[in-house]
Design a protein around this nucleic acid. Structure first.
Lengths: 170, 170
DNA sequence: TTAATCGTCGATATAATTTGACTATAATAT
DNA sequence: ATATTATAGTCAAATTATATCGACGATTAA
């Protein structure tokens, strides 16, 4: 059980969009990180639909953040890529069970009451979501400034600054 | 992204083991719930190896809890079935990236520092784990007594009480 | 001994993930 | 206008993970 790599791609890519001075294309992002373009483009479609980034088609097009980095949380990104389905989904095996499978139980209390196990799992997941909601892209930007060598940060920003960006062609 | 059904099977099955008055077999558990025997037996192997339940081989054998229900948490069960790997695993795409892929970076600071994004995801997961660690099987037992109709609970316990348990053969 | 039961190992079937090839459409530079 | 360069979307191959079945050996109660 794991999140898809799409989540990792999305989180890492969005770091580069934070400066938000110009649009950045899929090609540049994929080349810079050594990851496949086609898959990344699908991830970006999801992020666009979720309103996290906005797309600019055509020559000199690309993507930029659609909201303030302080208004984009880790959870927004995970949810956009992975969807809204909970990690644990109870398939209500009770209903297939010996006590009920041969009875018509459409109206009785057991079939309407929700599974206690399911509730616990949902609550557990919610604590995780709340933690991720509290971490914003703006925080990540500061954290990276603190943690990464200044040289690395500078080179990275230089790569994505428009003008010298024809480096995407090897 | 989802936990496997194995987690659901395990949680539901362990409920029936709580009384711990006699061993219960895979066949009974699978029949009662209408789920496949073979898969369930694999799940139970995992639970056994994790020290949550213990197995009694031979005729009239089966499974029983290896510890007090107050000492078995939801997380123990999830971890036993799903393994210890984190939900989010950073594959360090940084290292394949443009800035580093052509350099020998075996000793430099960037490759040793851990990814901030990864840390956040691990911390988030930990909050979920802590919640699940706080919920024990003993709590679940009380909760089910409170929530389910007394009739259902009684019928269920009767099914698994040894003696009349040849009902597993349809 | 025999039948029931767990433990282990593969085989298989189904589904999800990841990637690639290709087409359509939209915007811009010239 | 047209060529160019971008995203958007479709289709499907390749890979991996999940779920299920089946077979065989070991153990044990009757």
């Amino acid at each position: 059980m794991q999140y898809s790599v799409g989540v990792e791609y999305a989180l890492h890519c969005l770091v580069y969009l934070i400066p938000n001075e110009s649009t950045i294309g899929i090609k540049e992002l994929a080349f810079f990180q050594g990851i496949p373009e086609t898959y990344l483009s699908k991830i970006f479609t999801k992020l666009t639909k979720a309103g996290i980034i906005s797309s600019v088609p055509g020559v000199k097009g690309g993507f930029k953040l659609a909201r303030d980095p302080d208004d984009i949380s880790f959870w927004d990104i995970v949810e956009a890529v992975e969807g809204k389905k909970p990690i644990f989904q109870c398939q209500n095996i009770k209903d297939k069970g010996y006590l009920y499978r041969d009875r018509d139980c459409s109206g009785c209390e057991v079939s309407t009451s929700s599974c206690s196990i399911n509730l616990v799992m949902l609550e557990a997941e919610e604590t995780m979501q709340n933690y991720l909601r509290s971490k914003k892209l703006s925080w990540l930007e500061e954290e990276l400034d603190r943690v990464l060598p200044a040289q690395t940060r500078k080179e990275t920003r230089a790569f994505f600054a428009k003008g010298n960006s024809i480096n995407a062609s090897e």
